[in-house]
Amino acid sequence: MNRYSYKKLSIVLMSIAVLGSVLTGCGTSSKVSAGTSLTNTASASPKQLVFYSAQGYDDAMAKAFQAKTGIKVQLVDMSTGPLAAKIEAEKSNSHWDVAWFDGDATMQALDNEGLLMQGWAPKDASNLTQLGQSLVPADKAYYPTGVTAAAAIGVNSKLLPRSEYPKDWNDLLKPTFKNALAMNNPSVSGPTFPYVAGMLNLMGDTQGKQFFTSLKGNGMKVGETNDVEIKSLLNGQVKAVTIQDSALVAAKADGNPIDIIYPSSGVFTLPGVIAINKKAPNAQTAKQFVEFVLSPEGQKVMLDPKNGGGDSYFNPIINGVEGSSLRQSDGINWLKVDPVKSAQNENDIKKWFNDAIIH
């Protein structure tokens, strides 16, 4: 393991588990609770699939796949951090076939541990868009299923004149946003870490850290969840927030006075990623499931807010698949956050943010 020691990865994953994540799946059917252990018997049959997930539409996807194929799906639904830690803890006696959550840095860390099947391509992998293709790792250990922006700028259209809307990240340093901007803590909010890591990459480490330090000096507030930040935006405590764009789209879909701005210098990709266990008890069934997820039929399940809530407001990365009309699809400058580099620097970046911005 040339990039990660076992000890370092364990610390990263377990610390994520303790802090938790906002990316929480909400399925209920064919589901095993977070604290339930699976036995080898549960995944012994080739007509079963053990599915670890942190996606809002995972239960609906499990039901759709089971209805189509007759294959029983056993869903373990948890938030991303605890799910990754569970996979790590079970590495010597793994029970899962497929894992699915948001965040390629976390999935890359599992890949570096040698836990994922490499070198396999779904039959329709060539149908990924250019953005989708760019998110496939060289070893083909996991595949993107959709993408959101780790952070976009949401403004309260009743509090902020359109003439004062920010156009790029540095506009948030203007007096307009004095004590009137909020973001999440990257140690608590899953999407916020790639936003912070991406800004350090976009601006350079020194200037990127100075950007956040200046935001703090301008009175920026730091919370923990998208719901808290949106509530602050709507009740007038702040004029703008920088959070995952799907949360902003979902809030706007509920009729709230929110406008979403994608900064001209770019926003950072937060892909949903799906992978197969290197030691999958049901490898062929797992491949069939991944192909179903990436098919137009599977994407339709994902894109229905009745199935996924806010998670359904993602940007499709499969040719011919249309996303929600409520979210912007064109004119976004997508920037990839290197998952390998992000995973390497995760602990250091989170510690710096905690020491320099929160305290």
Rank of each mutant, 00 (worst) to 15 (best):
S10Q: 14
E229W: 00
I258A: 02
S30D: 13
V32I: 12
S126P: 05
Y142F: 14
A356H: 09
N40I: 09
A240F: 09
D259V: 04
G27H: 03
Q244E: 15
W100Q: 05
K252G: 06
A44M: 08
V136G: 00
S264R: 07
K72T: 13
L160K: 10
S37E: 14
N307K: 01
H359D: 13
D97R: 07
A105W: 15
S189R: 02
K336P: 00
S92T: 15
N282D: 02
V228P: 02
A240Q: 09
H95Y: 11
G190R: 06
M14P: 00
K336W: 03
L128P: 06
I153L: 12
G25Y: 10
S43C: 15
P316Y: 12
E88N: 14
W334E: 11
M220P: 05
L128F: 12
I153M: 08
Q55G: 04
A197L: 00
V337H: 03
D124L: 08
K174S: 14
F51P: 12
S45G: 04
R327D: 06
T41I: 10
N156M: 11
A109W: 01
G190Q: 11
V155N: 08
S265Y: 00
N184D: 10
V290E: 02
Q288N: 10
D77S: 13
I274Q: 05
K8Q: 15
Q328L: 14
M78R: 12
V249W: 13
P122N: 09
I230C: 04
T206P: 00
A149G: 03
F193A: 04
N315H: 15
I230V: 15
L131W: 05
V196D: 01
D59I: 00
E113F: 11
Y52M: 05
T192V: 04
Q288L: 12
S15G: 15
K231E: 15
V301I: 14
N156T: 08
S79V: 13
I153E: 05
A251R: 01
G20Y: 08
G146T: 02
K158S: 11
Q133P: 00
G266F: 09
E322M: 09
K252T: 07
G320V: 03
P271Y: 00
T39W: 00
L159I: 03
K216V: 01
N333L: 07
P316H: 11
Y57N: 05
T129I: 06
G219C: 07
I318K: 06
S37T: 13
P46C: 06
D168S: 14
I349D: 04
K350L: 14
V301E: 05
D139S: 14
V337L: 11
Q244A: 15
P263I: 05
H95K: 15
Q118A: 12
S157F: 02
G20A: 07
M107G: 07
G323V: 08
T80C: 08
K279F: 07
Y313A: 04
L115A: 06
S92K: 15
A343D: 12
A62G: 12
Q288D: 11
P271H: 01
L294H: 01
A89V: 06
N307T: 06
W334F: 06
G103R: 04
L19G: 02
P316A: 00
A54C: 08
S29A: 14
K306I: 07
K68R: 13
A247H: 07
A125H: 11
I358H: 03
